[in-house]
Structure formats: C-alpha cells, structure tokens
Simulated assay, not measured.
Amino acid sequence: MSTQPPDGSQPPSYNQPPGYNQPPPAQPGYPAQPGYPAYSAAPPPTPQYMAPPPSSPGRTMGIVAFILSFFVSLVGLILGIVALVQSRRAGQKNGFALAAIIISSVAIVIGVIVGIVIAIGIGAAAAEYARLCAEYGSGVHDINGVTVTLQCPSN
C-alpha cells in the first residue's frame, strides 16, 4: 500500500544520511541580490552573551562583610574596607560596607577590652593563689571560714 497525498502529487524523497567519516552535504545558498550579500541556508552562530557587570561594585562584598562583622570581626573589617573602596571608586555609596566597618571596629575594641580584663583577672587570681601557697603551703586549710585545698608546686 502506498501513501500518496490526496492531490495526486508524489511524496518528497528523502536523502540517505551521510555515513560515518563522510562530510555532510553542502547546504544550498541563496543567490545574492544586487546590493545585498549572499546568505547561506545555515543560521548564523548564536552569540554568547555575558552577564552584565554588577550595577554597584563592592555591594555584594559589603553585604558579606556586614554579615561577617558579627561573627569574625577582623575579616568583616577587612572586607568592609575593600568593598567601600571599590564603591567609592565607582562613585557610589555602600551602606552595608560602612556598617560592617563600624560594627567590626566596635566589636574589635570591645574584644580587646574584654581580653585585657580577663588577663588582669587571671593574673590577680594567680597572684592570690601564689600568696596563699606561700602563707599556708599544700594541704586542706580553713581560710576565713572557707575550706580550701591547696596544691602548691614544690620549691
């Protein structure tokens, strides 16, 4: 049984696909019209589009610096400064970078103060322990109504 279109015309014949290691058949071109260049049947290659440049340089880094300023203050401070410099060079403002610099700076100052207070407290406790060891020596002692066990280093 053959299938023919209802209008009686012959169905189009199909070409055999090229075998392996054979170049594909040449594509027919369109004839050039006067004043226009000739076009081939193959479509032009698709242009590769690049992502547009960031609208605000340093903005993403400023947001990252802002978040890090609460957890890792030194890293937040450094990234905040870099982000602010990038934004200023582009002539734009970056509130996140500025906030990261301020928060990181305050956190670092507070951390240094707390560290100094802790070091002074540990030093005072060590000095008091050394005084008690020199006065009472090793053993269990009743000092001002409190039972204290001292283990002093041997001299």
Rank of each mutant, 00 (worst) to 15 (best):
V114C: 08
T60P: 10
A99F: 10
R59G: 10
V72F: 08
I116Y: 05
R59Y: 15
S55D: 13
V106K: 02
P52L: 15
I120V: 08
F70Y: 01
I81L: 09
Y49S: 13
A99K: 01
R88H: 10
I78D: 04
V112G: 10
I118Y: 05
I102A: 14
L77N: 05
V114T: 14
T60H: 12
V72R: 11
A100H: 00
G58D: 01
S69M: 05
F96T: 01
I67Q: 03
F71T: 15
S55P: 07
A97H: 12
V114P: 00
I102T: 13
I113L: 15
F70H: 06
I102W: 07
A100R: 02
S69H: 12
L98D: 06
L79W: 02
A65Y: 13
I67R: 05
V64T: 13
A83Y: 02
S104V: 07
Y49E: 14
L79G: 00
I102P: 07
L79E: 01
P57A: 12
K93V: 10
R59V: 11
A51P: 12
V109W: 09
A107L: 14
S56D: 06
V85W: 03
S56I: 02
T60C: 13
G95W: 06
R88I: 04
S105Q: 12
A97Y: 07
P54I: 03
L98K: 09
I116V: 15
S55C: 06
F71P: 00
F71M: 12
